[in-house]
Amino acid sequence: MTPFTRLDARAAPLLEANIDTDQLIPKQFLKTVDREGLGAGLLYEWRFDEQGREKPEFVLNRPEYKGTGVLIAGDNFGCGSSREHAPWALLDYGIRCVISSSFADIFSGNSLNNGLLLVSLPEEQVKALQDEAKGGNHIFTVDLEQQTVVAPSGASYRFEIDPNVRNKLLKGLDAIGETLEYVGDITRFEETRRMTQPWVSA
């Protein structure tokens, strides 16, 4: 997993609340057996019309937002389906950070496991950042070490993040490798189980 330390990138505002994972990556892209290439399907129905042509008015299609690395979105981002294809699509598209006033649980776990940083800020601050992002073409700085988002105007917002989540993102740690260090505990747990709950074995 790529570590996340600091990101300087354009940011795009997505004002809608409750952007669900069905919107982020529609079902027709879920038939893949790979993780790569899903950026093509990101927010597909918002970006493209029925004939597959770009909708020029949609924010990500506008020239001043090309190369966007940060999304600033409405409340309850990532609700709905558990599909990890959503963070895969965001990352493949080039988005490494999403800012919102809240995120759905499963989406948060999936994002962490792929090195996508989710920044939670109070609603007024998210609105202020969205306003600053409206002109496009500006560079936002997201600094995970400092826990700050710096807007083009120079306004700086400090965000809170679980220290363990922060550490994992900074180092790009592999969760499975970490858990396997506890394999002795897992084995002991299973042995006790076999004695006390023998009926659960298949």
């Binding site: 963070p87 499963i106 999936n110 496991n113 299973e190």
Partner: peptide, 15 residues
């Protein structure tokens, strides 16, 4: 409900 990285985690560790 879990995501695919977690599916891999459960397959590998049963946790």
């Amino acid at each position: 409900g879990i995501g695919t990285s977690e599916v891999e985690h459960v397959l590998a560790t049963q946790t």
